[in-house]
Amino acid sequence: MGAGHAHTLYRHGHSPVHALPPHCKLAATFAFVVVVVATPREQMWAFGLYAVLLAAVAAVARVPAGFLLRRLLIEVPFVAFAVLMPFVAEGERVEVLGLSLSVSGLWGAWNVLAKGTLGVAASALLAATTELRALLTGLQRLGLPPLLVQIASFMVRYGDVITDELRRMSVARRSRGFEATGIRHWGVLARTAGALFIRSYERGERVHLAMVSRGWTGVMPVIDEVAATRTQWAYAAVLPAAALAVCVMGWTL
């Protein structure tokens, strides 16, 4: 995809992970996250093993560690929240480097951090190996209402068209000597947003006309029948199955 394109989560490749049908990957990621969340937080080694499992999948998918780590940055706000917990939580306290911290708060912070990081890493890995629109068809296969999937597909398709329109309007503004420098100019920007809404709305009407003209009756026709074979499901199940084994050990040990 061209530079400056929005779908930067995806990393083009031809690995076995890329080749799996999207709904298998979605189901596997979801199952993995459920298993991670269900693991008792005291079993720290289990979370280490989960991280190793994800690293193995990333290696098979040939997604470099640096790429994945950068995607983890979206987690930062949660980290801030987690860091606060030991200070504000109630209960038994311990002294660490002269600070008085709550024990339950520390466990809470660890819980959020470990499970959150693993969840985000698994999703980032899914997004890195599956194109956005494949994800959408996968969601549809898994039973998400078709209407939601259609709305999301149109957002993907027209996101660029609308950003482009916004850019053209901004160019037109600046060509007439307008620079938004402060609060005085917010009125102009608000009117631009209004105009953008009208334009997008009218485009929606024209697109609807075009769809009706080609025989659309309210349901998206089936174009690609993405069916998964039993082997593909089996491959996809490896990650959540291994995680489940770890989780069961965590509960029984």
């Binding site: 629109r133 597909s153 149109f154 993907v156 398709r157 027209y158 068209v161 485009r203 024209r206 697109v207 006309l209 075009a210 769809m211 003209s213 080609r214 025989g215 659309w216 009756t217 026709p221 089936v222 174009i223 690609d224």
Partner: peptide
């Protein structure tokens, strides 16, 4: 009908799916 603005006419994520839309419908 081929409309005046192709951006109104081409609404699917890829060219292939767009061309397939009518016959699939």
């Amino acid at each position: 009908i081929v409309f005046q603005d192709p951006d109104d006419q081409l609404f699917m994520p890829t060219v292939r799916e767009d061309v397939a839309f009518g016959p699939a419908a």
